[in-house]
Design a protein around this nucleic acid. Structure first.
Lengths: 337, 337
DNA sequence: CACCTTAGTGAAACCGATTGCAGTTAATTA
DNA sequence: TAATTAACTGCAATCGGTTTCACTAAGGTG
């Protein structure tokens, strides 16, 4: 059996409660007693049982991470590791751990969250990416459980979220292409069940409007957030239209778009210009190097974690949100025409 | 206050222990009682408290993940997300969660493990990547705590590990270059404090020997597992030698190596051929597309998790190891000369 | 000198489950 | 009919801590 607080108490000739107070560095314990207890802990090789601790104190010092869909997909897009990186840096600074519950589908995802919340396994949750159909957000709000979401939810009342200005970012990207003389501009994004896709589509439309370009739905396609998704979307567009440029809301998809263009006999950027989103590490090494919108993925993670921790520590913290700035990174995938 | 097992018991007119047995689906409870209890649970919206549960049962149903160094670095190399993906798929199937404790340095890393083990927060641990100086492995073995490590440890006695045949893989890569007519072959790897670097260096030497090529230490360099690391290592080599090919034990480093070559006025693959390791998703989209050794990263994760779970379930499971096969992926970064 | 603080510590309830053992009832066996 | 057995269920201890409240002794106050 492991050494418990009682063993320490016995050896230090104090009560278990005193040992507990020593661990918590309670100022009401005298220096001498503390020393005696520490000595006993040392000698016995005592280490507090975190589980017992959280049962009594109702604090777990871990935050739950909910990935979209199957983690299987999530981990293959560098976006998610990057935001996790941000989260974990903050968590680590504040001595929090990360609990990741991976789920296969939406039903399981919901179950995972309920498990974490009702099972009292975490002190708070960050949801990566919000769907328009998300039932989780209302539920968590109802439960009054601390959580933040990355990606502005459709109904953002009373919830903490962090996101970019997606409309603005997409408008920025589209305008960049327009300023380069393009007017036949395609738009490829992930499924419209994600709020982010919706917003970026809006930004795209906005830019067109500002420049008196008619919106043409044949220039728009959605598909999965993957290389193949980008490929398929681009192919569908090319079968009906001949754009001179394309906005792709995910760098990984961009790789597929490039491949589709090549398969179609088009050269990038000579025949078709392309601007991506996310600025994943390797977009710089693509062929051609990708011009892309850097959405500060890392900061998205950092801010969401910071917001969450504020929320956890401050019971009656008001709902708040943070907009993380974007930046256009010029490389070689766009030309003037 | 939340609804507990006692509330359910009261409502169903049974003892808490009976409720507990119903949850565990104990066959000694009659069908009628079970139904009555289920009904009470339903009506009260009962949900078991996982923390209390693990305190009593000494099972947490979570496995701990130890990343090398700071997670900050780890997440930026696609290798780690990919193995996590493998781990999480297995974990999910077996209804286990993942606890990630991120650490800044070796000292913190050790502390994190102690926290998990002594704090009884996890049922087992998988260590990503083993260092030659790793104190963790002997410690865990000493504690008789279930764990597996990805990457064969220097002293593998009594530990479960999964890895590729790194010597063989590196030999394969080097021989491939030799068969293409290269004899001045450089070798770039991560720090030699990692066993994997050591092994791959051995494989490289082995291939040279088999082909009567003299080993030249000026053709060998180590650096960080990053793009910059690759760049710097390559630059150091180019300052003293003119290899016609290079083995790089990490695709991310390869990108840096390519950049260094270009900065040096060399064309890849015309002037210098290059073979990488890992076959990260984007190596196919590099310029030129990377010929690389696919080490089945995903499977590394899967197998390590499977092995760990076996270990957890089977108290007296013998130490075992699994070798995951590698495959050479031919693309465009090598030419015959 | 009686009374009130204050500092330091202990006793015991509690967090929310699990589980070994005992007890009750009904059915089966001798 | 008495004894044994099987099928359920409950009691209470336990897991390893935290925290409220009470208590003691020493020092301060009027």
């Amino acid at each position: 059996m492991n050494v418990t607080i009682k063993d320490v108490a016995q050896r230090a000739h104090v009560a278990p409660s005193t040992v507990s107070r020593v661990i918590a560095d309670n100022p009401r314990i005298s220096k001498e007693t503390k020393e005696r207890v520490f000595k006993a802990m040392e000698e016995l090789g005592y280490y507090p049982n975190a589980i017992a601790r959280s049962l009594a104190s109702k604090m777990t010092y871990t935050i739950g991470l909910i990935m979209p869909r199957s983690a299987e997909d999530a981990f293959s897009n560098p976006f998610f590791p990057e935001v996790m990186r941000g989260i974990s840096v903050v968590a680590h600074n504040e001595k929090y751990d990360l609990l990741i519950s991976t789920s296969g589908n939406e039903e399981e995802e919901k179950q995972a969250v309920i498990d974490m919340v009702k099972g009292r396994r975490v002190d708070g949750i960050v949801l990566l990416c919000s769907r328009t159909t998300d039932e989780l957000i209302p539920w968590l709000r109802e439960e009054k459980f601390p959580f933040t979401v990355i990606g502005k939810p459709l109904d953002s009342k009373g919830v903490c979220w962090v996101d970019n200005d997606n409309i603005g970012a997409s408008r920025l990207a589209t305008n960049y292409l327009i300023k380069h003389g393009h007017r036949e501009i395609a738009f490829i994004s992930g499924s419209l069940e994600f709020v982010v896709s919706l917003d970026r589509l809006d930004g795209y439309k906005l830019a067109l409007e500002e420049n008196n370009i008619l919106f043409d739905k044949e220039l728009v396609a959605q598909d999965e957030f993957s290389e193949d998704g980008g490929y398929n979307a681009m192919m569908r567009i090319l079968k009906q239209k001949k754009p001179t440029a394309v906005v792709v809301t995910d760098d990984i998809m961009s790789f597929g778009v490039i491949r589709a263009a090549i398969d179609y006999g088009l050269k990038v950027p000579q025949d078709i210009s392309l601007i991506g989103f996310n600025n994943i590490p390797l977009s710089a090494y693509a062929n051609p190097p990708l011009t892309t919108i850097d959405i500060s993925t890392f900061d998205l993670g950092v801010k969401s974690a910071e917001l969450l921790l504020k929320n956890i520590k401050n019971k009656d913290f008001v709902a708040d949100h943070i907009i993380v700035p974007v930046k256009l990174i010029e490389r070689k995938s766009c030309i003037k025409r």
